[in-house]
Structures are given as C-alpha cells and as structure tokens.
Simulated assay, not measured.
Amino acid sequence: MNELLTSFLDSLGLAWWVEVTTDSPRCVYYFGPFPNSKAAKESQAGYVEDLEQESAQNIVVKVKRCKPKNLTIYDDVADQSSRKLSGILSSQF
C-alpha cells in the first residue's frame, strides 16, 4: 500500500526525494521517492555514508519534493576544469 501511495505521489511530482550534491566529483544525486519528508530524512545518512566511502567531497543534502528526470547528474566539464585548476595550483607550491 505504501509503495502504491509513493508511486502515485511521484507521478504527481509530490513525492519526497533526497538530493545530494558533491563538488568532487561534481554531481547531483537523487534518492527516492519517499512518501513523506520524515522517511526521506531517515534514509539520508546511508546515502551520505556511501558517498563518503567513495571519497566524495563537500557533500550537501536537501530533502525536497520534486520529480527528477535523471537520478544522477554528472557535470564532467566542470569536474575536469576543477581538476586541471587543482593540478595547476598544486604545481605552483
């Protein structure tokens, strides 16, 4: 029953999602859908822990109602630019 409600809410764009943004890699991840914000908040720690184990940097978490088109958005151009800049800066020291 809960899955049916969640699917219905998701189809209307009213389900809750955990949005996780990282700077390295430069990504936005969506985890969900959840029937309410409480369920989403209870799940967010596990997602953050997984990303920390993968050495993600500057992790920002938001719980919100949305309907993401993609569950992972990777900004490879910005990620490559920041890596090049980091390499340039580190070679100056």
Results as ranks from 00 to 15, higher is better:
A15N: 05
L14V: 00
G32I: 05
Q57F: 11
D50L: 07
F93L: 10
E49P: 06
T72F: 07
T22G: 07
C66V: 07
Y29I: 14
R65G: 08
D10R: 06
L71H: 08
P33N: 05
P25T: 02
V20E: 00
W16N: 09
A40F: 01
L71V: 09
K38A: 14
L85V: 12
L5F: 07
Y47V: 08
K38R: 11
S24E: 13
V18D: 04
Q80W: 08
A56K: 01
L85Q: 13
D23W: 07
S55P: 00
F34A: 06
G32Y: 10
L9F: 02
S86M: 11
S82A: 14
K38S: 15
Q57T: 10
S91H: 07
S90N: 15
L71S: 13
N2K: 06
N70C: 05
L12G: 04
G46V: 04
L71Q: 09
K41L: 11
A15C: 04
S86F: 08
T72I: 14
W16V: 01
A56S: 14
R83E: 15
D50T: 08
L14W: 13
G46E: 11
G46S: 09
Y30L: 00
S55L: 14
G32L: 02
Q92Y: 14
S11K: 09
V77G: 03
Q57I: 12
K67M: 12
S90Q: 15
V28Y: 01
A15W: 02
S37L: 08
D10C: 08
E3Y: 12
N2A: 06
D75A: 10
N58G: 15
L5N: 09
P35M: 06
L51N: 01
L4F: 07
S86C: 05
V77F: 10
L12I: 10
V48F: 00
E19R: 13
L71M: 15
V18S: 05
E3I: 01
E19Y: 04
L12F: 15
C66S: 11
S90H: 12
M1D: 13
E49R: 09
Y74E: 01
V63F: 04
Q92S: 15
S24Q: 10
Y47L: 02
I88Y: 12
S11I: 03
Q57A: 10
S91M: 11
S86R: 12
S7Q: 11
C27Y: 07
F8V: 08
N70T: 10
W17I: 01
D76F: 10
L9Y: 05
V63L: 08
V28S: 04
S24D: 10
L12D: 05
L89T: 11
Y29R: 04
L9V: 04
G32A: 07
S55Y: 11
K69Q: 14
S11N: 11
